[in-house]
C-alpha cells in the first residue's frame, strides 16, 4: 500500500535523522575522564575552563572539515549557529585571550588525534566511535 510505504519511508527518514544527530564527545582512555557534564563540555569547547579532573589540560578538537556535524554539535550544546560561535571566538582571539579548539579535517583525523594525545577531546557521530577512544559525554542523557 502506498500510504503504508510512505509512512515506513517517513519513519526510516526520521530514524536516520536521529541516527545522524547522535553526536558524542570522546576522549583518550588515558585521560582518566569518567564522565563530563554539559557545563564541563561547554567550558572546554568555549575556552572558559580546560582543566580536567586529573590535572591534564583538555585540548578540544573542532570538525572544521565537516561543517554539518560541527553545526549540529554547537546547536545541541549551546543552541548557537556557527556564525555566533565564530563571533564568540573573534572576541576572545582578537582580544588576545583563549585560543579556539584545534581544527581537524574529518572524523578520522579527529579520532586519530584523540587516540594519540591524552588531553584531546572530539565530538563524533556515535557510529564512528572505535576502541581507541572512550565516550565521555552524550546528549540527552546527562
Amino acid at each position: 500500500m502506498n500510504v503504508r510505504n510512505t509512512l515506513v519511508g517517513l519513519c526510516l527518514l526520521l530514524l536516520s535523522q536521529f541516527a545522524m544527530a547522535d553526536i558524542v564527545v570522546v576522549a583518550n582512555p588515558k585521560a582518566g575522564i569518567r564522565w563530563l557534564t554539559r557545563d564541563d563540555v561547554v567550558n572546554i569547547y568555549l575556552g572558559r575552563y580546560r582543566r580536567l579532573e586529573s590535572g591534564l589540560t583538555a585540548e578540544p578538537i573542532d570538525l572544521s572539515g565537516e561543517p554539518e556535524i560541527k553545526a549540529m554539535f554547537y546547536r545541541k550544546l549551546v543552541d548557537k549557529s556557527l556564525a555566533e560561535i565564530n563571533a564568540y571566538w573573534s572576541r576572545l582571539v582578537f582580544s588576545g585571550q583563549t585560543q579556539p579548539p584545534q581544527m581537524a579535517a574529518n572524523t578520522a583525523e579527529a579520532l586519530r588525534r584523540v587516540a594519540a594525545r591524552p588531553g584531546a577531546l572530539a565530538y563524533v557521530e556515535r557510529s564512528k566511535v572505535d576502541r581507541r577512544v572512550v565516550i565521555i559525554f552524550e546528549f540527552g542523557d546527562e
Binding site: R50, R51, N86, A87, R91, S95, G96
Partner: peptide, 26 residues
C-alpha cells in the same frame, strides 16, 4: 590552565568587552 600572565602591549580592559571594541564581527 587556570593561570595566565601576559606582558607587553596589552588591551586596556577598563570596562567589560572594552578590549575588543574594534572587532565589529564579534
Amino acid at each position: 590552565t587556570r593561570v595566565a600572565l601576559r606582558a607587553g602591549r596589552i588591551g586596556a580592559d577598563f570596562m567589560m568587552l572594552a578590549d575588543s571594541r574594534l572587532v565589529g564581527y564579534s
